[in-house]
Nucleic acid binder design. Structure first.
Length: 279
DNA sequence: ATTGGGACCTGCTCGC
DNA sequence: TGCGAGCAGGTCCCAA
């Protein structure tokens, strides 16, 4: 659910309110320690002790990960999984139904809520062993690191469906199921095509679709579709759902040609596409 | 090595 | 109307 545009929206929201703020208390709600939150970290107690009292100096993003710089010594890494939300609220607001971790900041609080508990929370000491290795992620799609040449090189010889390859975070970081569908539609490429079969021209269209769709989705502050109930740090939905062409539009008519949009499982994930426009 | 599939987790939708 | 089965998705892990 939260893909690059959603995570970037939250990052921007939080950066504007959190930088310079001190974390005064960390509270775990329910049994946050048993699932992925902190799964690879020694303990909740150590985590809380290490985080408390530090000042948030910056909020960065890498792929779908958020990185909070806590002074020069620690980086707090957070992944929203599928249903994670980060809610910035006055400290007096009642906790979210699915709040798992609450960071208290002077007069306000940041809640990490996550119904399905796939979210991850971790704490780094820069330069030390990192259990969650961000270096395995592919290039940031909205940076110079992503290029046509890189895609061409990476796709070469790959038999895997292009849909599955776009979802692979080690190929390009930040694309999930919503945007892979929309990107392939915008590029006019059949999601089932082996990545290695794309021509130079198709890779060019794909590159432009990746940057174009993601940029537009960031401008619209993410997608809040039926099964992807995203909200930003202030609890507001995004606006890109109004621009979805194929995602979750099975049996609707293709906005380009009028053909019926189909849904098919590719690489274990649902893919939506127009069988006429996407070749 | 690359790829596919199941596991994780649980709220919600849909069909009977 | 009520109930239960199955779906949804991001990532990890194991097996082929």
């Amino acid at each position: 659910m939260p893909e690059l545009p959603e995570v970037e929206t939250i990052r921007r929201d939080l950066e504007s309110v959190l930088v310079g703020t001190r974390i005064t208390e960390v509270e775990f709600v329910h049994d946050a320690g048993v699932f992925r939150i902190l799964r690879r970290f020694p303990s909740r107690k150590v985590f809380a002790r290490e985080v408390t009292g530090r000042t948030i100096e910056g909020v960065d993003r890498r792929g779908k990960y958020l990185l909070f710089r806590l002074g020069p010594e620690r980086i707090l890494l957070l992944h929203l999984g599928m249903t994670g939300q980060l809610l910035f609220r006055p400290v007096t607001t009642a906790p979210d139904r699915f709040a798992r971790v609450v960071f208290r900041l002077n007069g306000s609080k940041l809640e990490f809520a996550d119904a399905r508990k796939f979210g991850e929370l971790y704490l780094y000491r820069p330069g030390h062993y990192e259990a969650i290795d961000l270096n395995r992620l592919g290039p940031e799609p909205l940076s110079r690191d992503l290029s046509r040449a890189y895609l061409s090189r990476t796709f070469q010889g790959r038999k895997r469906a292009i849909k599955a390859v776009l979802l692979d975070q080690s190929v390009v970081a930040g694309i999930g199921n919503i945007y892979s569908d929309e990107i392939l539609f915008a590029a006019g490429i059949d999601p089932r095509r082996p990545a290695g079969s794309l021509t130079r021209k198709e890779i060019d269209r794909l590159y432009r679709a990746i940057t174009g769709i993601l940029t537009r989705a960031v401008e619209r502050r993410g997608t809040s579709a039926r099964d992807e109930w995203f909200v930003d740090a202030r609890g507001r939905p995004g606006g890109f759902q109004a621009e979805l062409k194929v995602y979750q539009r099975k049996d609707d008519l293709c906005p380009e040609c009028g053909e019926t949009v189909v849904r098919e499982t590719i690489g274990g994930r649902s893919a939506h596409f127009c069988p006429r426009c996407q070749k």
